[in-house]
């Protein structure tokens, strides 16, 4: 027996199904029923029932790529804020090898880095690393925070959504799995991208989003074009960074 429809909004404590089903993410079993533990949308796949949260915090997982901001420099490591209940650290040895150098010369407090979660230990210490393609320090650009569970929606099927934003705004866009998005391009275009990303976050639980995002982008860009008709319209093509696709 199932008591809810697919994509229905549920609240904590709502009864979803009975014991014939399996518990997925965002659900728990009590006696013979499966209940929701979150505010979110029901997702039914075969006999597995789960709830996709509408709001969440990032819990670090080994192998994820994240965007972090340096908060502190210690003797042999950097501390980073990764938009999560657990802060991360980047060991100096990961960057310099055996060489000894002053840490603040390489990365200073406030720098934004693109990193990989190397390990999360049992005391929830998050070890980060910089080894991998495209990982490193960002120069310039803006940061936008979204709810981590909405990252797949922002990227879209095979990157359709994110590539559309990139193509239309001519911005570099990098998405970390912790819900931090880095955008760099013309200042005006950065603002357009920010607006679109915020809109995707707000409406991620509705369908037909990609088309609406395209319309919104074209509308905003059309307005900008009209305004700057007399100004020079040539925009230089930005080199495309390797972005992360789930």
């Amino acid at each position: 027996m199932i008591f809810v429809k697919d994509k229905e909004i549920v609240v904590p404590g709502d009864v979803l199904a009975d014991e014939e089903y399996h518990t997925g993410r965002g659900t728990f079993r009590e006696k013979n029923n499966i209940l929701s533990s979150l505010v979110g949308l029901v997702a039914i796949r075969d006999k597995k029932i789960s709830v996709i949260p509408l709001q969440s915090k990032y819990i670090p997982k080994r192998g994820d790529v994240v965007i972090g901001k340096i908060t502190d420099i210690r003797f042999s490591m950097w501390n980073l804020d990764i938009n999560s209940p657990y802060s991360g650290f980047l060991p100096a040895s990961d960057v310099f090898g055996k060489e000894k150098r002053e840490l603040s010369r390489t990365f200073d407090v406030g720098d934004v880095l693109f990193l990989r979660v190397v390990d999360v230990d049992e005391v929830k210490k998050v070890k980060l690393g910089l080894k991998g393609r495209g990982l490193g320090k960002f120069r310039g650009g803006i940061l936008i925070n979204i709810t981590p569970t909405k990252v797949p929606r922002l990227i879209g099927k095979k990157g359709s959504m994110i590539n559309m934003i990139k193509d239309e705004t001519h911005c570099d866009v990098v998405v970390g799995q912790n819900g931090v998005v880095w955008v760099k391009g013309e200042p005006e275009m950065e603002r357009v991208a920010e607006k679109v990303i915020k809109m995707i976050e707000e409406q991620s639980h509705t369908s037909g989003l990609t088309d609406r995002v395209r319309n919104m982008l074209l509308e905003i860009l059309g307005e900008i074009q009209e305004e700057s008709e007399d100004l020079e319209g040539s925009e230089e093509e930005e080199e495309n960074r390797e972005e992360f696709i789930q």
Binding site: V11, P12, G13, S37, V39, P53, L54, Q55
Partner: peptide, 11 residues
Amino acid sequence: LADAGIPMRDI
């Protein structure tokens, strides 16, 4: 708490 997305048994 529910709005913050914190998992709960009931409200």
